[in-house]
Computed example of a mutant assay.
Amino acid sequence: MPITDADGLRRVLGHDRVAVVGASTSYEKAAHIVPAYLQRHGYDLTPVNPGADEVFGERAFDSLADVPGPIDIVQVFRPSEEVPAIVEQALARDDVRAIWLQVGITHDAAARKAEAAGLDVVQDRCMKVEHGQLVRNPMD
């Protein structure tokens, strides 16, 4: 079952290395606004976007397999039908701890496969909203 409780969400949000699959160079899109917020709050972001050289001031990579450093969370801003392939890429790595599917993105079969491999899964939730409600210091 995907994580929905506050304690589970806090646990996932406690990881700090995030690969953003579908990161956008368009400042007005959620796929830019949400990760930029997370970066401002101390998360180490790696954008994954084959159409960009750089996003959020960070080098962009074509796929999860191309990301050289460790990844804790794979944050997904791609259509639901692309989730199974993204989960496969995440499972091919030995460092991913969680898959976070942003608002409007779900894929139950891929989520079950990730969970069976020991990954935490969050579906149809905004990482920025959850961070703001559950983690962020109110003085920020």
Rank of each mutant, 00 (worst) to 15 (best):
V74Q: 08
E88F: 04
D66Q: 04
D120G: 09
P70H: 08
D94W: 00
R97L: 12
F56T: 02
H41I: 02
L101P: 11
K113F: 02
D66S: 11
S63M: 02
H41M: 10
Q75R: 10
R40V: 08
G57N: 01
Y37T: 04
V87S: 00
V121R: 05
L101V: 06
A111F: 06
D72K: 03
E81Y: 13
E82P: 04
R78F: 08
V103C: 10
P84R: 01
G51L: 12
F77K: 00
I105T: 01
E81H: 15
D53Q: 04
V55A: 08
P47M: 14
I73A: 08
P35F: 14
G69A: 08
I105C: 01
P84T: 00
L38I: 06
D44I: 00
Q39G: 14
Y43E: 06
Q102K: 02
E115R: 15
A111P: 07
A31Q: 09
W100G: 13
V55L: 07
W100Y: 06
W100V: 01
E115P: 08
I99N: 13
P35W: 14
R40Y: 07
D44G: 03
P79M: 10
A116P: 02
D44C: 01
A90C: 04
I73D: 01
G51R: 09
G104R: 09
V83I: 14
L101T: 00
R59N: 07
K113R: 15
K113I: 07
